[in-house]
Amino acid sequence: MREKGFTAMTIQDITDRADVHRGPFYAHFPDKFALLEQSIRDKFRHIIDLELPSDAGWNPEHLLKCPLYS
């Protein structure tokens, strides 16, 4: 994405870089937008997991205390 930008990036570019065939890609994602959405979700979840105690759950009170929202 850094090289071409999201708009110009193709599924072939993604699969070539990941060294996988297009079939497995489409078995998991319908398009590059779904891959981007999953990547953002995973990154956000990782950041939340780092910032909140493991027992916090998705309690709104804990989420409001998260440094990401300060």
Rank of each mutant, 00 (worst) to 15 (best):
M1Y: 08
M1C: 10
R2D: 06
E3D: 08
K4I: 14
G5R: 14
G5W: 15
G5C: 05
F6W: 09
T7G: 06
T7K: 08
T7Y: 11
A8D: 13
T10Y: 12
T10V: 12
T10F: 15
T10H: 14
I11E: 01
I11K: 05
Q12V: 12
Q12G: 06
D13T: 04
D13G: 13
I14M: 09
T15Y: 10
T15R: 06
T15L: 05
D16L: 14
D16T: 07
R17P: 08
R17T: 06
D19W: 15
D19S: 14
D19E: 15
V20T: 13
V20G: 05
H21W: 14
R22I: 07
R22Q: 07
G23H: 02
G23F: 00
P24K: 02
F25I: 00
F25S: 03
F25A: 00
Y26T: 06
Y26M: 08
A27C: 11
A27I: 02
A27S: 08
H28G: 04
H28T: 10
F29A: 06
P30T: 02
P30S: 05
P30Y: 02
P30G: 07
D31I: 03
D31K: 14
D31L: 10
K32H: 10
K32P: 14
F33A: 12
F33R: 09
A34Q: 14
A34M: 10
A34L: 14
L35V: 15
L35Q: 09
L35H: 12
L36A: 13
L36R: 07
E37F: 05
E37C: 12
Q38G: 07
S39W: 12
I40R: 13
R41H: 11
R41P: 13
D42R: 10
D42N: 07
K43N: 15
K43D: 10
F44C: 05
F44P: 08
F44M: 12
R45L: 05
R45C: 07
R45S: 09
R45Q: 10
H46E: 07
H46C: 08
I47M: 08
I48N: 04
I48S: 01
D49R: 02
D49I: 02
D49L: 02
D49K: 04
E51A: 04
E51P: 00
E51Q: 07
E51C: 03
L52N: 00
L52F: 00
P53H: 00
P53S: 02
S54R: 03
D55I: 00
A56L: 01
A56S: 01
A56I: 01
W58V: 01
N59M: 11
N59K: 09
P60E: 15
P60R: 13
E61K: 15
H62T: 11
L63D: 01
L63H: 04
L63E: 00
L63I: 02
K65S: 08
K65Q: 04
C66L: 03
C66T: 07
P67Y: 01
P67S: 03
P67G: 04
L68Y: 03
L68H: 04
L68N: 06
Y69K: 03
Y69H: 06
Y69T: 01
